[in-house]
Amino acid sequence: MSLNIIVLVKSVPDPKTPPTLKVDGSLDLKNVKIVVNPIDKYAVEAALQLKERYGGKIIGLSLGDHDNIDIFREIIAMGVDSFIYIKDPDYQRFDTLQKSYVLSKAIKKIEKDLGRVDLVLCGVESSDTNMGVLASQIGEWLEIPSISYVDKILEIKNGSIIVKKIIEDGFITLRSRMPVVLSIADTGYEPRIPSLRDTIMARRREIPIWKTSDLGLEFREIVLKTVRFKQIESKRLGKIFRDEDVDKMIDRFFEELKRDGVSLLR
């Protein structure tokens, strides 16, 4: 058996330093650092483990409007065979329907080249929009099944895949026909750290950039509009202690607790 796998990778503002707001309430994206959506690396890891087990080919695919294609090199270094970036200047206006539409068209195009796509993987949700709808929507556009919140892929046999999915009060094991779209949770596949050699090699690789106009899209109106954003004021004290001398750090910690009137013992 040999699997053709597409992994969807989103670029997001670094969740460690989320964007602030401009005076008009829109996002100030000028100074944000763009990184790969952290959960997507779990999907990449899942793809790599499948390839190691069953053989095949992994293609990374991303959609965005920025020029920082270097962020995808970490994904290449992890071991995906090739990576394609679709750039669209209107991306910031896109709603989930448009994003899933463009990506499903791109998957179709890749499928034409590969002959067949067996699996499409992505992370359960992105750290910026937190929507979690991509896998299902791509499944619907492509008229194939989809399973979200996948913890582990258990087995692939005779054109079917068995996965363990996370639900509210436990797990559910499902069998699905392939091709299928899976959204992978950050639970079952700890992403590998690429070696120095692979990292250097990845820096030298070419990343083709596609334009949405190459995908034969129909005009679609953006249906979901963002009206405004609001900063959530953290009510947390956010007192951080670090010291190579742990005793001192703990002294300080207990002093602060005392000062703030917090008692651990009751």
């Binding site: 709808v133 991509l134 896998a135 929507q137 996370i166 639900i167 249906v223």
Partner: peptide
């Protein structure tokens, strides 16, 4: 988990907006 999956697919079928 299931509700979000159904909602996402409905939105594509009806070409409408979804917010989770």
């Amino acid at each position: 988990a299931l509700g979000k999956e159904i909602a996402s697919r409905i939105a594509v079928r009806l070409r409408t907006a979804v917010a989770t």
